[in-house]
């Protein structure tokens, strides 16, 4: 068999340019994220735990606390941030620096695929549908990367990233912004949620991402009349995760019908005044006090 020189044997540059372009993409993210003090990833391994609700409310509370804050809705297929924040749909300005994110009344800078789509329009990508499993993951990672690098976030104390369920986007974030990212794990009290969130947080730990702590959402039901918190879900996932992973339990947020109504109509001021909102505002204060964001 004849000896053919290997890739490494060839000293000439890689003229396909693929490696250089991938490196350039990472440098674009680096340049943008240098102006962001902390990226706070709000993660869970499971859908339906109210992660987007926690992320949007927390970002709003941080913006109202005097810092500069942004919210990146990284749930590309189920974006909710603009509606939770009551953001009106306007055209996004494009400048040489990037796409200017909309700003809510509290100064929170927001980006989401929801801003790009018609009401109710699903996210669809062009490409050969029959083989979409081959390229869809790369494309969604690329979209996430562009949301970090090509949105004109400006100087931020904190960029809250609302991650979709599962660990994949968290792993991508660790790859793209390894130095500034901290993670908050959101769970509900059930054992199923605990197992899923533990998996995500271990994936974060495997990539050396610092974990700020656990938030237990839907931690009981807050009575709209007397304010007392009664049982809602069985389990103690927040405490158990904190114990097992040696992390602080940062907040317990009860289900609160008043907060849910405010979220439904995009009334963040009302939401933050609710029982659940006050718990999240206290979480924001704690994170600021501890220097997490």
């Amino acid at each position: 068999m004849r000896k053919i020189r290997t890739y490494a044997d060839l000293e000439g540059p890689d003229r396909s340019g693929l490696g250089d372009q991938l490196a350039l993409q990472h440098r674009r993210v680096d340049r943008r994220m240098k102006a962001v003090r902390t990226v706070l990833a709000v993660a869970s391994g499971k859908g339906g735990v109210g992660k987007s609700f926690v992320a949007a409310t927390l970002a709003s509370a941080l913006a109202r606390g005097g810092g500069t804050a942004g919210l990146l809705d990284a749930d590309l297929n189920g974006p909710t941030a603009p509606s939770l924040l009551g953001l009106p749909r306007r055209s996004l300005s494009v400048t040489n620096d990037g796409v200017v994110p909309p700003v809510d009344s509290a100064g929170l800078r927001v980006f989401s695929t929801d801003l790009l789509l018609e009401d109710g329009e699903p996210l669809r990508w062009r490409g050969p549908a029959a083989e979409s499993s081959v390229w869809l993951g790369s494309l969604e990672k690329g979209a996430f990367r562009e949301f970090l690098s090509d949105v004109s976030w400006g100087e931020l104390d904190v960029l809250v990233v609302d991650l979709p369920p599962g660990a994949q986007r968290l792993v991508e974030l660790a790859e793209l912004v390894p130095k500034r990212t901290r993670v908050i794990g959101v769970t509900i009290p059930t054992s199923a949620s605990k197992a899923a969130v533990a998996r995500s947080l271990r994936a974060a730990g495997d990539r050396d991402l610092p974990i700020a702590g656990i938030v237990e959402n839907m931690s009981g039901y807050a009575c709209g009349s007397c304010g007392a918190v009664g049982p809602l879900h069985p389990g103690d996932a927040g405490d158990a995760l904190a114990r097992e992973l040696d992390l602080p339990l940062l907040a317990r947020i009860p289900f609160d019908a008043a907060a849910a109504a405010c979220a439904e109509r995009g009334d963040m001021n009302g939401l933050l005044a609710s029982r659940a909102g006050q718990e999240i505002a206290a979480l924001a204060e704690r994170l600021e006090r501890e220097g997490a964001p």
Partner: peptide, 27 residues
């Protein structure tokens, strides 16, 4: 889907170029 061009780029990348050139539909 990787946001790269075989042979390299000759003009600057536009903001959200991959998203905007790949999205089917959009507002």
């Amino acid at each position: 889907s990787l946001g790269i061009k075989i042979g390299g780029r000759t003009v600057p990348e536009q903001p959200l170029e991959l998203v905007r050139s790949s999205l089917d539909g959009g507002r």
